[in-house]
């Protein structure tokens, strides 16, 4: 079965599949270069609400650049980005900040604020919301309970292990109940057991909050657990798309090599 479909032929098929579903994200012909090196040449993808899309590709293939373009951390050179119905390039600073509150981003390093306790880290995204102290604390406790780390509330990031940091980073991202989640290599640097726990947590989040997610990973075990659909990036373009099973059975040796467990 041939499953390695190029983007342009893949896209109408995907769009047909999601026609009736609500669109969370739509990217068309995204391009980005750094110092004359073209990283993203022509990326198009769609993401529906409640869907987990795993993005695979070699290191340096532009996966992280892709999700940083989505959140507005990197400005693309060309193409269009519709996030929750809004065109990123047309938003002013305030509009972009408002949109960012609906899009969660889990960094590879978790990016916890070193000078703040876990509680302060989790309260930080809520600082512009008018809430009572007790309500904030309630939300912090709820978010920590959801990631299984309620006891870490007063700890400093330096006292946490890699897996705990990832969970706290996830709790901080989820505290504003985002509609879209972007995960940048959520299991990198973790042992297989913790990686599996984080993958299960991603699935829990999808079920509980009906969040649409893009998961950048090299971890095929994580992809197998979390993916509803997988997109493979090669040389700055979408080389293949499909379910885990479809891509695993790919005849293309390059694509197939990703799925050799």
């Amino acid at each position: 079965m041939e499953t390695t479909l190029p983007t342009n032929t893949d896209q109408p098929k995907n769009q047909a599949n999601v026609k009736s579903a609500e669109m969370a994200l739509e990217i068309k012909n995204l391009q980005k270069s750094f110092a004359n090196k073209s990283v993203l040449k022509d990326i198009s993808l769609t993401l529906t609400k409640g869907e987990n899309l795993v993005v695979l590709g070699k290191s340096g293939s532009g996966k992280s650049v892709l999700i940083k373009c989505i959140i507005g951390l990197i400005e693309p050179d060309g193409g269009s980005l519709q996030v929750l119905g809004k065109n990123i390039s047309e938003l002013d600073d305030k509009g972009l900040n408002d949109l960012r509150k609906k899009v969660g981003f889990l960094f590879q390093s978790a990016a916890l604020y070193d000078s703040m306790t876990v509680r302060e880290n989790l309260e930080f995204p809520m600082r512009e919301l008018r809430m009572k102290e007790s309500e904030r604390l309630e939300l912090v406790k709820e978010a920590l309970t959801n990631v299984g780390l309620a006891e870490a509330i007063n700890k400093m990031p330096s006292e946490l292990s890699g897996g705990m940091r990832k969970r706290i980073g996830l709790a901080r991202t989820l505290i504003l109940k985002p509609e879209i989640m972007l995960y940048d290599e959520p299991t990198t640097g973790l042992d297989p057991i913790t990686s599996k726990e984080i993958s299960q947590l991603i699935m829990d989040i999808q079920k509980r909050l009906n969040t649409a997610s893009i998961i950048i990973t090299h971890d095929i075990a994580c992809a197998k657990i979390t993916a509803n659909r997988i997109l493979v990036i090669r040389d700055g373009v979408c080389a293949a798309a499909g379910t885990f099973t479809e891509l695993q059975a790919s005849q293309d040796p390059w694509i197939h090599s990703f799925f050799e467990l």
């Binding site: 959140i71 951390l73 900040n97 960012r100 509150k101 604020y113 930080f124 995204p125 512009e128």
Partner: peptide
């Protein structure tokens, strides 16, 4: 970057 994606300047 984490501050920026939280909508904080």
């Amino acid at each position: 970057d984490a501050m920026q994606v939280s909508g904080i300047n």
